[in-house]
Lab assay of single mutants.
Amino acid sequence: NTKMVRFKKGDSVGLRLAGGNDVGIFVAGIQEGTSAEQEGLQEGDQILKVNTQDFRGLVREDAVLYLLEIPKGEMVTILAQSRADVYRDILACGR
């Protein structure tokens, strides 16, 4: 149940992230009207890879910085997997 989305970065990627470290990086929110939303990313999706950067094992701050450093107008390719069950557990633990 993995999906790959590809879009051109606007002012931002339009994602709020949660998790990090051993639990993985998850989409915690999506800005309305962004390409990330239009391409089908959803809250609870685990981000496995962005462009050439493996997101598994990253701390959340490093994942956020990586997304911020992608220049506006560059193509962004995100490999994600729907993991809403794991995401709910992360929220319940306050991570």
Rank of each mutant, 00 (worst) to 15 (best):
Y66M: 01
G14H: 09
Y66P: 08
R88A: 11
V50L: 04
A92K: 13
Y87H: 11
K8E: 08
I30N: 04
G73C: 06
L17W: 01
F55D: 02
E39R: 08
V59D: 15
Q46G: 04
A18L: 08
M4L: 14
S12E: 13
E37Q: 12
Y66F: 11
L17N: 08
I30P: 06
K3M: 06
L65W: 07
R6F: 05
A36F: 15
R95V: 10
V59S: 15
E69H: 12
G57S: 10
Q31G: 11
T34F: 10
K72G: 04
L67A: 04
E61P: 02
D45L: 03
L48K: 02
V27D: 10
L79Q: 13
E32C: 06
A84F: 14
G94K: 11
G73V: 04
G29I: 02
T77F: 00
F26Q: 02
N1Q: 00
L58N: 01
G57Q: 11
V86H: 14
G40S: 03
A80D: 02
V5I: 14
L41R: 02
C93Q: 15
A80M: 01
I47D: 00
Q31N: 11
Q46I: 12
K49G: 02
D54Q: 03
C93T: 13
R16Q: 14
L15I: 15
V27G: 02
Y66T: 06
C93E: 15
K49F: 10
E39N: 13
S82K: 11
R16Y: 11
D22H: 01
I30R: 05
K72T: 08
E37Y: 12
D22F: 03
D89Y: 06
V64D: 14
A36E: 13
G33F: 00
D45K: 05
D22A: 08
S82Y: 01
V27I: 12
G20K: 05
D45E: 00
N1G: 06
V50F: 05
V59C: 15
E69C: 07
V59W: 07
E61L: 04
R56D: 05
L15G: 02
A28V: 12
C93M: 14
E39Q: 14
A80P: 04
Q53K: 14
Q81P: 00
K72L: 07
C93A: 14
L91E: 12
K72I: 11
F26M: 04
N21G: 15
Y66H: 10
R83T: 08
E32R: 13
I70K: 07
R83D: 06
E69N: 15
V50D: 09
